[in-house]
Design a protein around this nucleic acid. Structure first.
Length: 259
DNA sequence: AACATGATCAACCGCGATTTC
DNA sequence: TGAAATCGCGGTTGATCATGT
């Protein structure tokens, strides 16, 4: 199939959005709702491709977008989720209410990823401290050794993820309205652990590759993070680690996925 | 003050997945 | 059932701003 040529059509605006365009798009979506991106520009009177409108709305205009710096808690969550999910930014963003996949991706590339890749002590590239971070923020402590970080250039697409409350099973029914329901993974979910771990992996339909990557994750490293995470009063009990039963603090109680 | 370099992030690109006909 | 249309995702680019020399 390939890509649609929408953005290369002549006569369409490209580049930065103007305030007027923003207003037109916002007003239109307020009235007609999201979706039908292809026809939206024409109907709304915008000289933009639908793709561009969708992106602008999702990443910038949506009313529930949270502006401002990524907090330390958010950063730690991002790190932990990235450890589990790799570069599945949309999935990660789904666990951070108000944050967009683009924002998280950018943040990872400019902050976390850089820090993680940097040599542990010296030779670290000059880095601007995150204003919201204090010394010893997660990435500094999280120096994953040797590429235990899962980075896939092409992530397996994982749509139709259904998050339910703990222990509640939902069949492989598509429930779009729930697919991005935010869940607070900072809380420990339940006692029964290994079952959840297995369910989580199965629910994500991990292929052999992903599973092996997952099993390569250096959990002891994350355990250290948990035990060091206290300089701002942030709790660092075992529930913050990924080790063993604590996996649930990151893994959703139930995630069901069907491709 | 002027230029070079680096950091940030909004926007675009290309492709696979899904939906529609 | 298969092709076309559309959507959504992750990777990349480039404009802009900040900082260093």
């Amino acid at each position: 199939m390939g890509r649609s040529p929408c953005c290369s059509k002549e006569g369409l605006n490209r580049g930065a959005w103007t305030a007027l365009e923003d207003r037109i798009l916002t007003e239109y979506i307020k009235i007609h709702g999201e979706g039908k991106w292809r026809n939206l520009p024409k109907r709304a009177g915008l000289k933009r491709c639908g793709k561009s409108c969708r992106l602008r709305w999702l990443n910038y205009l949506r009313p529930d977008i949270k502006r401002g710096n990524i907090t330390r808690d958010e950063e730690e969550l991002i790190i932990r989720l990235h450890k589990l999910l790799g570069n599945r930014w949309s999935l990660i963003a789904g666990r951070l209410p108000g944050r967009t996949d683009n924002e998280i991706k950018n943040y990872w590339n400019t902050n976390i990823g850089k820090k993680i890749q940097a040599p542990s002590t010296k030779g670290r590239p000059q880095e601007k401290p995150n204003p919201t971070m204090e010394e010893g923020s997660a990435p500094d402590r999280l120096k994953p050794s040797t590429g235990s970080c899962v980075v896939r250039t092409k992530a397996t697409r994982c749509t139709r993820v259904v998050v339910t409350s703990a222990g509640q099973q939902v069949g492989h029914e598509v429930l779009p309205s729930l697919t991005r329901e935010p869940v607070d993974f900072s809380k420990s979910v339940s006692e029964e652990s290994n079952d959840h771990l297995l369910n989580f992996m199965m629910d994500l339909e991990m292929d052999g590759n992903l599973l092996s990557d997952f099993l390569d994750v250096d959990f002891s490293l994350l355990e250290n993070i948990g035990s060091n995470t206290c300089d701002n009063g942030h709790s660092s009990p075992a529930e913050d680690t990924l080790h063993g039963s604590d996996f649930q603090s990151v893994a959703p109680p139930n995630i069901q996925s069907s491709q």
